[in-house]
Simulated scan of single mutants.
Amino acid sequence: MNDLPDDVRDISSASKARSIVRASDPQALTTRALEERRLIHRHDSARVQADAFRDLRTRLLALGGDTNFVTLVAPVVPGCGASFVARNLAAAFAFDETKLATLVDCDALRPAQQTALGVDADTGGLMDYLDGSVDDLAHAQYRTGLPRLYLVPSGGTREITGESFSSLRMRTLVDSLRSSHANRYVVLDGPPVLKSPDARILSDLADLVVLVAGYGKVTTDQIEKAAANFEPDKLAGVVFNDIH
């Protein structure tokens, strides 16, 4: 077991957090690098987007109650920009210096987060952990260039993921991430809802679901069909996204 990361210590030295991340610390991203990776930041050039994701975070916190929670972000169909939404929602949680965020890339056919965040996932990712190729969760979770934001990349590409997502190992991974620190918020970047049952399966592991509809890319009927896949009390709402 690794020592506690510095930012976990900074949040609460009295908290009994368990380290489940590798100790290597990448260089902090510059404003230009953040913009190239389409990540929100605190400077004026991204203020509108940053405020929008802060507002989404606030709404989810109001729904989630007093404890940390797991949020599934899933697109209605491919091309809705859900990975952009998931990445920046996780960044919005990490903006708060009292919180940690872990983004889990669960779209094994269209993984996007490792490249977007510039993470060198040299010891594997989610699918490698689920199939047993990686035994230690610490070897599948990586620091990013944003303080308090971590990534579990998809890892090796897989054609069939449903059985993996419904496995005890997947549930253990999500529970371990959430329980590693009382202020860690987990964001699952899910696959398209209307293309496979994987998003519905992942929703069983989530407390809240955010559905992403690409502006001008989906119909009202498609949104309603996608929303019907989730328990009504878990569906936090629909984000209409025009950035892909």
Rank of each mutant, 00 (worst) to 15 (best):
residue 1 M to N: 13
residue 5 P to D: 00
residue 6 D to T: 13
residue 7 D to M: 10
residue 13 S to G: 12
residue 14 A to P: 12
residue 14 A to G: 12
residue 16 K to T: 11
residue 16 K to W: 01
residue 17 A to Y: 06
residue 18 R to F: 11
residue 23 A to W: 06
residue 23 A to N: 12
residue 24 S to W: 10
residue 24 S to R: 15
residue 26 P to M: 11
residue 27 Q to M: 09
residue 28 A to R: 14
residue 30 T to P: 08
residue 32 R to N: 10
residue 36 E to S: 12
residue 40 I to Y: 04
residue 41 H to R: 10
residue 41 H to D: 10
residue 41 H to M: 01
residue 46 A to K: 15
residue 47 R to E: 09
residue 54 R to L: 15
residue 54 R to M: 12
residue 57 R to H: 05
residue 59 R to Y: 03
residue 60 L to W: 02
residue 62 A to D: 12
residue 63 L to Y: 00
residue 65 G to K: 13
residue 74 A to M: 11
residue 75 P to Y: 03
residue 76 V to D: 10
residue 85 V to Q: 07
residue 88 N to W: 05
residue 88 N to K: 06
residue 93 F to G: 04
residue 94 A to C: 08
residue 95 F to N: 08
residue 100 L to N: 15
residue 101 A to E: 07
residue 105 D to S: 06
residue 107 D to Y: 09
residue 110 R to L: 06
residue 114 Q to T: 04
residue 115 T to G: 15
residue 115 T to N: 12
residue 117 L to Y: 01
residue 118 G to P: 04
residue 118 G to N: 07
residue 120 D to T: 14
residue 121 A to L: 04
residue 128 D to K: 02
residue 128 D to F: 01
residue 129 Y to R: 09
residue 131 D to H: 05
residue 131 D to K: 02
residue 131 D to W: 07
residue 134 V to P: 13
residue 137 L to D: 00
residue 137 L to T: 07
residue 141 Q to T: 15
residue 142 Y to L: 02
residue 144 T to W: 05
residue 146 L to R: 15
residue 155 G to I: 06
residue 156 G to S: 15
residue 162 G to P: 03
residue 163 E to G: 11
residue 166 S to E: 08
residue 167 S to Y: 03
residue 167 S to K: 04
residue 173 L to K: 00
residue 179 S to C: 08
residue 180 S to R: 05
residue 184 R to E: 05
residue 186 V to K: 07
residue 186 V to A: 08
residue 187 V to G: 09
residue 188 L to H: 02
residue 188 L to V: 05
residue 193 V to H: 06
residue 196 S to N: 07
residue 197 P to V: 13
residue 201 I to L: 14
residue 206 A to F: 00
residue 206 A to E: 05
residue 207 D to T: 10
residue 209 V to N: 01
residue 210 V to G: 01
residue 214 G to F: 00
residue 216 G to K: 07
residue 218 V to W: 09
residue 220 T to M: 10
residue 221 D to W: 05
residue 221 D to L: 06
residue 229 N to A: 03
residue 231 E to L: 14
residue 231 E to I: 08
residue 231 E to Q: 14
residue 232 P to A: 03
residue 233 D to Q: 06
